[in-house]
Amino acid sequence: MRAVSAREKRRRLAGYSLIAPAVLILIITFAVPLLYSFIISISDSNAIVANKFELVGLKNYISVLQNSKFQSALFHTCFFVITTIILEFIIGFIVALLLYRETAGSKFFKLIFAVPLMVAPVVSGLQWRWLFADQYGIINHLLSKIGIEAPLWFTTAQTSWVTIIVANLWLAAPFVILVLLAGLGGLSEEMNEAAEIDGANKWQVFRSIILPQLKPTILIILVIRLTDAFRIYDLIYILTGGGPGGKTEVLSTYIYKRIFTDWDFGRGSAASFIVMVIICLLSLLCSKLMSEKEE
């Protein structure tokens, strides 16, 4: 028994020694900055600028939650997340259902849909800003060719949101399409064929057979896209900068401006922790839904 016990201890020690470097790097790169940021979030901003800490408790958190700009940014973020995810799923399902059967050109289109995933959001933002440009943008040029008066895209809140959502769909919809294609590829064709033989139309097959089998895939997409959409920053910063008049300000741009423009480190850090809590709660909700579906 002693020999077995000693061998087990050596095995555990070897395992701990192997994971120790990774754990140490994780602590240094994640846990320490997170703790430091939390201390800043409960400290007075003026004292931080003076290179010292004066703890103020939850004052910064209360101030952020009561701030009208934060509330507007939260509303804009929720609007963006809901709108873009609904559109991503609509586009994703339509395209995936068209491509999941091996037809002529389907492999080519699958390759094309993978291209936006290789493009950095900043590059995509610059690309769409040029496309929507008032004087030399190709979109306005094409609209004028067919007799439509092109709007000044970045001067009103409505048209600004159109540019943001279109640019984001170009980046994110391919991910949804490809994951749905992977999910569709694992479905049984026998059930679909049996339903069609029994007289079910395409909509009934999709609603009653395909969609229930795709629920785990949909929930995985939902978790990833929710967390990603909630922290959108690059596209909005490049396209509108939160304008006009703060009408496209989201939580990420709000936090950036509080910290790096106003030097309000305390409230900026508090806002970032509030966003982190929101994302964690949404992720936990989706994970719970996933576990219930698996059971």
Rank of each mutant, 00 (worst) to 15 (best):
A182N: 14
G246E: 01
A195W: 05
S208L: 07
E193R: 12
I165M: 06
V162Y: 10
S252F: 03
G147I: 05
E189F: 00
T217K: 12
D228N: 12
Q135A: 07
T240K: 05
T227G: 15
G242C: 11
I218W: 04
S208I: 02
Y233N: 14
N140S: 15
T156L: 07
P151T: 00
I139G: 10
S160D: 04
F154W: 09
T163P: 05
L239P: 06
I177Y: 08
I221V: 13
G137K: 11
A194W: 01
A229H: 09
L171C: 08
T155A: 14
I224F: 15
G245R: 08
E190G: 01
T155F: 03
N192G: 00
I138W: 10
I138Y: 07
D228F: 15
N201Y: 08
G242N: 11
D228S: 10
E249F: 04
I218S: 13
I232R: 00
W170K: 05
Q204D: 11
Y237W: 12
N140K: 06
E196H: 03
L214N: 09
V162C: 11
L251G: 03
P151V: 00
I210M: 08
E196F: 08
L178A: 02
I220K: 02
T248Q: 14
T240Y: 12
S188T: 02
N140W: 11
T163W: 15
L169G: 02
I165P: 01
I210G: 00
G185I: 11
K215C: 03
L222E: 05
G186T: 04
V205H: 06
Y237A: 12
A182C: 01
I146T: 13
P151A: 02
R207P: 04
L180K: 02
N192Y: 00
L181N: 13
I221A: 01
N140H: 09
I148S: 04
E249L: 15
I146G: 07
G243N: 06
I146N: 01
L169Q: 06
L169W: 02
V179G: 05
L251R: 07
L131K: 03
I139S: 08
W203P: 01
P216D: 07
I210F: 03
G186H: 04
P244Q: 03
K215L: 08
T156A: 09
T155Y: 08
L239S: 06
G241C: 11
V205N: 12
Y237T: 06
F132Y: 15
E193G: 00
G186I: 01
T240I: 07
E189V: 10
G183C: 08
I238S: 11
M191H: 02
L180Q: 13
I148A: 13
P212Q: 13
P212K: 09
L142T: 07
I220F: 08
